[in-house]
Structures are given as C-alpha cells and as structure tokens.
Design a protein around this nucleic acid. Structure first.
Length: 624
RNA sequence: GAGGUUGUAGCUCAGUCGGUAGAGCAACGGACUUUUAAUCCGUAGGUCUCGGGUUCGAGCCCCGACAGCCUCACCA
C-alpha cells in the first residue's frame, strides 16, 4: 500500500510542508537535512490567512517563476509525487483565500440539477443568420441557468477554459472566458483543480461544435479538493481502493453511483409492495440475549451496565413471530443481520435481510408475494427519478445503449415510482443482463418440486436411497451413519442448485432437513417449504411456519443436543416457546436476502459491489 | 481457516536473462478565446508493500509478514 505510506507524513505535517515549499530552493531543488534555508519556516507566519505570508509567497513565486514546493524536503519528510500534488492544491487553496473567497463555500440556493438544465436545450433560440464566412457562430439566446457540481475535466486554451462539471444527475460543459467573466473570476478560475466543487451562473447555449454549454457569467467557489483525484478517464480500478474509498468510487467509476441509487430504489420498492398488501414494518432488537432463528455463529458483545453478554442478531424470525402472536397479522422487518462467518463474493458479515410473516397464509401465499416483490422492484429500478444521469448522457449524444434511458420519465420528482402504463410495462421488459447471459424475470417464475428437480439433474429416482448414496460417495461425501435425506440434500446442493439458473421456485423439501417447517397434511415426509434460486444463488426461503409449541421445543432441544460446546451459545429460547403456547396463528413466512437480490438485478457479480462499505481489514495505523 | 494469485509514481499500467526505474493521465512553468481524452514546448515526481536471505549486484530468485482478489470450507 505504497500510497498510504507516502501520503501519511504530508497530512500530519501539511502546514510544515507548505512552509518548506516557500523556501528558496537550492539549484536543483533537492536538499539534505540540516542545510540552511533563506527565509525558512521561522520567518513565515504559519497562519494561512495571514496577508504577510500571502504577500511573501506571491513575491517568491513571481521571482522564481518555476517552483516545486515539495522538492526541497528534509529527512523523514516524504517527498512523493502525491505530496507535490497535494502541495500544489494547498497553494491554490491559499490563493483562493487571498482573493477573499471562502474555499469551503456555503449555502448555494436555486441551482438546477444538471440533468434538468440539459433538458432545457430546446429553450435556446438561434438567429438564422450565422456568418459562415467569418466563422462567427450564429447569435444565440438561451435561458439563464445556475448549476453546481464537481469539476471532472478541464481544458485550458489561452484566456479560455472549458470545464466539465458533474452532479448526480449529469454532466455539462462550462465556457469560462477571461473577457466574459472578468478579471476577478478569471483569477479564481486559475485556482480550480479537478475535483473541486464550484457553482456557476450563466447562459445555456451551444458551442460551435454543438456542445450544450453554460457560458459562465459568474463563478462561485463551493469546496476545494485537497487530494488529487484518480486518473480522469480510467478512474479507480483497484478493487481495494474502490471499497476503502467508496466516495471516490462513486465519483469516478462508471456506473457506481447508479448502482448505489438503484439499490435504494429496490429497497424502497420492496417496502412499497409490502405496504400495498397491508404489511407493516417493525424494528426488532438487534442485540439478542439468545441468538436464534438461524444456524449461524453470532458476533458477541457486552452490555456494561447490565453486565451481560449479548449477541448481534443472526435472524429476524423469532421476534417477528412473537408479534404474530401479538396480533400484528402481516408483519415484516427489512434490516441488517450479522453472522460471524467467512467472507466471499456472496457473503459479507453484515447483510440485509427481509423477513415477512403473514397470519393465516402458507408457503404458497409467500410464493406469490416473492414474485410480486421482485417484479415490482425491477419496474421501480427501471423507472423513476434516479435515472436522470443516464438520461443526461443520452441527451449529450452519448451511446443510447440502454433502452431504459429513453423511456424514463422526467416528471418523477416523487419518491415513489409512479405506476407504469400497460405499454410502458411492455417496454421495460423483465429480462435483465447477468454477465454474458440474461435473466428472464417475466412472471410467473417456474415452480418445480425438489424431487422432480433431483431426478432431472441426477438421473436418480428420489426414493432410490442406495443410488443416491453411491453418487454421494462418488462426489466425496461420507454417507456412513447419515440420514438418507441428509445424503440426498448433499447431492442436491452439489448437483442441482448450481444448475438452477432460474428464477425457479424449488418446493417441498424433505421434512427431516427442515425441522422448523410444517409438514404437508397429505405427506408428512414432505415439508411445506420453498427456496427461490436464481443463477445458482439462493435468493429467498419460505415456509409454512411451525406453530406447535411442544414440537418446536422438542426440535430446539434435539438441535442443541448435536452442537459442540462452543457453538451452543445458541440456547433454547424459552420465551419464544412460551409465546407459541399462547397461540401463533398458522402463517406463511418468507426471507429474502436483499443484497443478493440487488446483485442479480444490477448485474453485480460480487456482494461487495452492492454493499457500499463492505467489511475490510482495517488499514494500518498511520496509513490513512 | 486452506490453496492460488497480485502488490512498481497521486491514478492506470509496462519492466525481457538478476546489471543504475519506464509510459500515459494527473501536477508544475510557457504558448493558445469555441475546446471536448484539446494540442504543442519544457520541468519535476520512486522506501519497486514491509522484513530477512542468496548474490559482486535483487523490482526480478528464496523465506517470512501485511493487504487485495479468486477458489474451497463455514453460511445466506
């Protein structure tokens, strides 16, 4: 992590470094420790607001012409390129202050989103008599606009600068001419760096080449960026940097911001769908005395005042079911759960889970709900207010590769996507890209039983215990002493699940591997459970919930009996069993892994792409 | 936790057989009032992740550590 090490000393001693920069450099810049300086640090007021220092500095730079503030470093002082880049920016920061401008800006009212400004292109009036002979562009009158954004590109051309600024709805070019903005603003513009946030007032017109442009009349400085940005076109490629510095990723990686916003739209849509069906959202405790509801290792923590060990929740289930007992008949929670387990492209220690319970429903009720939740989420994601940026790009003459960009609606300032018309629904389509492939989400999703799929993918009859055991041994599974259903489940996971590109509901699991599920009345060997598979990933899991308190207690006990000592922090949740004794209505229950759903809907191959801040090992002390 | 792989300038990446460290972008100085990955001239920028070892000599070979990624295990 070279950059972390190089950067650190600068930050710590930033002020000192700037002072070093003001020394009269030795002939070739570099200087050894202990060498004398003329007008060294002690002569300089370290207060950056000081006019004394400013004048001194201005004088120096005038006299010296070329200056390399970081080159005369002293021992122990990193003099990397980054330090130079940062020093150059701090120079400009100082100059901005000298100009009487606050480099950290303030409230900036009445600016329009760049996407909206771009949509005003039609308001530009062009006088017909352009003079082609002299190359004079035809007279134009455009609307006065005000925008704010981050500088992402700039092209200096003498007494003229073209600056591209970007906000979260789009990007637009500014024309900053010395004669047009005046001397003061021109001086200010000399202090602009890539990454700075600026505001502009100007007239929306087109350049000779037809580029929609704000011809600046007034410039506003909104915030200085001290850190140099990554390569302006390639952006951040290193996945580690992208995750550690997500803010940079969002600014510079194509599609990163869009993906993040799509996630929020999906989550919003899930809530809308559930609300529209009468479900209410609750917030259960995340600190549990007993971590129940799933088989997973919990994180442990401690409450000091009560002096008790607590667990971060690993599931939402047991508290939601208590609420079912309490009479909240349609209840859900959409929130974070924590599992102290491995990290992989599909696993993050904290992840977002949706659990839904519906009184008097069963797993089939949940199947319909699952389908609705997903289909609605796709429609929401593909419409509404957050596609402004994509639209802006299309209007800028960029590639119109996404059909979605063309059909998004501009009237959508509401937080909720409006219902789409029949025609729009057809346009949106239910097929989404997934790597080189596609996923067809057009409802209804396929529904097949566990046994059907087993035969289909293994060629072995579901009741051929011996044949299944042979195959299991072949794959490398020791079948000795195992229940036939456990063996079958292993083979299913190995040979079937990965092949399920889906979306497909797998129904009716062997009862013995689903202890917390009600069995089919017609066939007690089969549990009323389904899992939804998409691209080999388990996305949803649902049951007809067990509400027999005695059976539940028995199953808890037998489950705990098999656990080794250190894992038996999972204790019997007696209060939960007591709740069941008071009568929990028969119910359908559903769990959806939101991160995985978002992955599938946004064509993200790893969970770290859809979690803004995935867990990483911390940087070493001093590396930041 | 195991195996594989990667770590070079602020960013993106080259670096041959072990022989004094390279490019593009970014930065700095200069020219340029319709550019758009602007162009042109010039300048500067390096603890080759860290620590050992082999060698006359290591970015390169060996050992160890740290971090990312991939696969597997645990799991959703």
């Amino acid at each position: 992590m070279g950059i972390w090490e190089l950067r650190h000393p600068q930050r710590e001693h930033a002020q000192a470094n700037v002072e070093h920069g003001t020394r009269l450099p030795s002939p070739r810049g570099r200087r050894k420790a202990g060498s004398h300086t003329v007008g060294g640090p002690s002569d300089i007021d370290p207060n950056p607001h000081s006019t004394t220092m400013s004048r001194f500095y201005g004088l120096l730079t005038q006299q010296l012409g070329t200056r390399h503030p970081m080159t005369d470093s002293i021992d122990g002082d990193a003099s990397g390129g980054g330090g130079m880049l940062e020093a150059a920016r701090r120079e400009k920061l100082k100059k901005i202050k000298e100009l009487g401008v606050d480099p950290w800006g303030g409230r900036f009212d009445d600016h329009e989103a760049i996407g909206q400004i771009r949509a005003r292109e039609g308001e530009i009036e062009i006088e017909p008599q352009g003079d082609c002979a002299t190359g004079q562009p035809p007279e134009q009158h455009g609307p006065k606009v005000r925008a704010a954004g981050r500088i992402v590109l700039s092209r200096k051309k003498g007494k003229l600068i073209f600056i591209d600024i970007r906000d979260w709805t789009g990007q637009i070019q500014l024309f900053v001419g010395r004669n047009q903005v005046g001397e003061e603003a021109w001086e200010l513009a000399q202090c602009f760096d890539l990454g700075d946030l600026i505001g502009v007032d100007g007239e929306l017109k087109k350049t000779k080449t037809g580029e929609l442009t704000i011809f600046a009349e007034k410039l506003h400085f909104l915030t200085k960026s001290i850190e140099p940005p990554p390569a302006k076109h390639k952006g951040l490629r290193d996945p580690e940097l992208r995750q550690r510095m997500r803010y940079l990723d969002l600014i510079h990686t194509e599609g990163a911001l869009e993906r993040a916003l799509r996630r929020t739209k999906i989550v919003q849509s899930v809530r809308n769908t559930l609300a529209s069906q009468g479900f209410v959202e609750v917030e259960g405790p995340t600190l549990h005395a007993i971590a129940g509801g799933a088989a997973a290792r919990p994180f442990t923590t401690h409450h000091n005042a009560l002096d008790i060990d607590l667990f971060m929740r690993i599931a939402l289930e047991l508290h939601l079911k208590r609420l079912l007992v309490g009479g909240i008949e349609r209840v859900y929670e959409l929130g974070r759960v924590y599992r102290n387990e491995g990290i992989s492209p599909r696993h993050n220690p904290e992840f977002t889970m949706l659990e839904v319970y519906q009184a008097y429903g069963n797993y089939e009720t949940m199947m319909d709900l699952t389908e609705a939740v997903i289909v609605d989420a796709i429609r929401a994601m593909e419409s509404g207010p957050l596609s402004l940026r994509e639209r802006a790009r299309v209007m800028a003459g960029g590639e119109t590769n996404s059909a979605e960009a063309a059909k998004t609606t501009s009237d959508s300032d509401s937080p909720h996507p409006r219902p789409l018309s029949q025609r729009e629904r057809g346009d949106v389509g239910m097929t989404l890209p997934w790597g080189d492939a596609e996923i067809d989400f057009t409802p209804p999703f396929a529904r097949k039983t566990y046994d059907e799929l087993f035969v289909e993918h293994t060629g072995i009859r579901a009741d051929d215990t011996a044949g299944i055991a042979r195959l299991a041994e072949q794959i490398g599974f020791s079948t000795a002493g195992k229940h036939p259903d456990v063996v079958k489940s292993f083979v299913f996971e190995e040979r079937v699940e990965g092949a399920l590109t889906g979306p497909i509901f797998v129904l009716d699991y062997p009862a013995s591997i689903c202890p917390l599920t009600k069995r089919k009345a017609t066939n007690p060997a089969v549990a009323e459970r389904f899992e939804l598979f998409i691209q080999g990933m388990e996305v949803a899991n649902a049951y007809t919930e067990l509400n027999d308190p005695d059976l539940q207690e028995e199953l808890f006990a037998s489950q705990l009996a098999g656990l080794p000592e250190e894992e038996s922090m999972a204790k019997m949740d007696r209060d939960f069993v007591r709740a069941l004794r008071h009568g929990m209505p028969p119910a359908g229950g559903l769990g959806i892994g939101i991160d995985r759903l978002v992955m599938l809907l946004t064509n993200s191959q790893t969970i770290r792409e859809v979690i803004l801040f995935p867990l990483l090992r911390p940087e070493k002390e001093g590396d930041v």
